[in-house]
Write a protein that binds this DNA or RNA. Sequence first.
DNA 1: CGTATATTTCCGCGATAATCGAATTATGGA
DNA 2: TCCATAATTCGATTATCGCGGAAATATACG
Lengths: 113, 113
Amino acid sequence: MESNAAIASLSALAHPVRLDTFRLLVQAGETGLAAGEIARRLGILPNSLSTSLSILNHAGLITARRDGRSIIYSAAYGRMREVVAFLLEDCCSGRPEICAPVAQSLERLACCP
Amino acid sequence: MESNAAIASLSALAHPVRLDTFRLLVQAGETGLAAGEIARRLGILPNSLSTSLSILNHAGLITARRDGRSIIYSAAYGRMREVVAFLLEDCCSGRPEICAPVAQSLERLACCP
DNA sequence: CGTATATTTCCGCGATAATCGAATTATGGA
DNA sequence: TCCATAATTCGATTATCGCGGAAATATACG
């Protein structure tokens, strides 16, 4: 992953509304959520959310598809994985005793038994 | 992990110099690197780096210790793990087939065989 | 004590980002 | 066609961030 792409993703996530939006979509799974539903759940104005969604989308962290009058957004899990991998890259110069606990705790994700 | 703390960390990383600095320290391991050495490797002014280090430190992503005239910085692996875990929390509403590849690829960190 | 090295702090200017109201586009249904 | 709903885009104001020069602090050493 490119450094610029990583920065775009990190920058997109470094914002209260955008981070909540992304986490909501990560939890929603492939089904996704309509823009209006997200705005309702987070209690923010539709236009504010729209710019947030645009930034997340441009950063590659979410995808959009139209369904009637609604636009459904979903988390882009591949990009999420890339960003995380970028942060952990070449961790600890090959000394497992340092990074092992990091990897170990990440193996136990909420949904992956 | 608190949302505000996560935002502080993500915001700290969403900057070319700060991201490069953090990754340098992640690769350096527990030994860490002196501020001057980091500035030299990245080719930036010492005062610019100093503010970057201050922001990363305040976000909890790095730690500092003095050694003679130098100040040695190291990555805070615990906080790094917390930030990543925060992003992956409750991934995919318990549907392993979506998040499994994410977790799987994270198991293979460069230093953790 | 005086000097050199390492790092940080202060300050001001230019650029970038956040916010919110108002207007605009797109779709579905009577 | 006309209206209501869903979502986005525009525009202007305000706040925040990034940058680099200059000065200040801390440590080591002769």
